[in-house]
Write a protein that binds this DNA or RNA. Structure first.
Length: 316
DNA sequence: AAACAGGCCTAAA
DNA sequence: TTTAGGCCTGTT
């Protein structure tokens, strides 16, 4: 990875990152691991996304695989927030080749080649936990809608705070965000566990349904340290992460595995959802032992997940 | 309009 | 220890 500071045409601080192998911004953000990114319009910078990371509004674009441009960010935010979140220090090209080399499954090789641009984001563990509880028995558009509404209810409007004069989503024409903002939640910060615990009723407007009691239990368990997120992060153990998170009502193996992988960086975590089941049934003779996939089984899982969804979409 | 959606819980074999 | 229903809500 190589990066340098630049100024964009408006004189704003910009950071260009290169030599990221096949890193694909679109595949990384759209492969189902995160829910808060927003696709903006395409322009001379290529594709553009906005997302909220650790209470910062982040704008990123990509024109060429392996290259990213972050807009309006200084060095500190880049080092402290962007590098870890987008996992820019990890050599995914190397891991990708290892996975391809180590498997005897032709289908997995195809999946790995197709998903070579995917990186595993290092998301905030609490946000990942909360989000994947919402994800159960649910579809992506609705998951995003619920999360957006929750952020709107509890969060801070970062457009307003940063004096962004026009809604970046372009839903408003040349109007100040704070006047005509439709409060979609996209530019709002994510609530802390304490916020949810102290006013759980704010969850209701998002219509979480039966997940409501799971969300409040997660807030309770995390706030009381019955489930200690710092301790789990420090342990760096997939098994420990699963056993701790499973104490929360509504967190089963699938949700816990997703949080382990996307929120705690347990790259050997191997979430199996209905899509993975289909893939395993159809292309791995009904069983797939994650331990045969090495220490990056979680990334292989994401390749499989992304690829089965892709080819299913093609068939339809 | 009935079934299903990126699961989990509970009750019952 | 494994299996079947039910669950909020929204969409097709």
């Amino acid at each position: 990875m190589f990066w340098q500071k630049k100024k964009d045409k408006n004189g704003r601080d910009t950071i260009e990152v290169k030599e990221l192998g096949k890193y694909s911004l679109k595949d990384t953000l759209e492969c189902g691991q995160c829910f808060r990114h927003q696709r903006l319009g395409d322009d001379e910078n290529g594709i553009n996304y906005m997302t909220v990371i650790a209470d910062k509004l982040i704008f990123v674009s990509q024109k060429t695989p392996g290259e990213l441009v972050f807009h309006s960010v200084g060095e500190e935010v880049f080092r402290e927030i962007i590098i870890p979140y987008f996992d820019l220090d990890t050599d995914y090209e190397d891991i990708n080749l290892k996975i391809i080399k180590n498997t005897d499954s032709e289908w997995l090789r195809r999946a790995a080649e197709y998903g070579a641009g995917i990186a595993i984001l290092r998301q905030n563990s609490w946000e990942a936990l909360f989000s994947f509880i919402i994800s159960q028995n649910n579809n992506i558009p609705r998951i995003r809608k619920i999360i957006g509404q929750i952020c709107y209810e509890y969060g801070v409007n970062l457009c307003l705070q940063n004096k962004v004069d026009v809604c970046p989503l372009g839903k408003i024409n040349a109007a100040p965000c704070h006047e005509n903002c439709i409060n979609c939640g996209a530019c709002y910060t994510f609530p802390k566990a304490e916020d949810v615990l102290s006013s759980p009723e704010k969850l209701l407007s998002s219509k979480p349904g039966f997940r409501y009691k799971y969300l409040t239990d997660a807030a309770r368990a995390v706030t009381s340290r019955e489930v200690n997120l710092e301790l789990i992060a420090g342990a760096r153990s997939y098994a420990y992460t699963i056993s701790e998170l499973s104490k929360i009502k509504g967190v089963g193996n699938k949700v816990a595995s997703c949080v382990a992988l996307f929120g705690f960086g347990n790259l050997d975590a191997f979430p199996i959802d209905v899509w993975m089941k289909r893939a395993i049934d159809e292309y791995f003779n009904g069983s797939l032992d994650p331990s045969t996939l090495g220490r990056y089984a979680g990334l292989a899982q994401q390749y499989i997940f992304h690829y089965i969804r892709h080819i299913t979409k093609e068939e339809a």
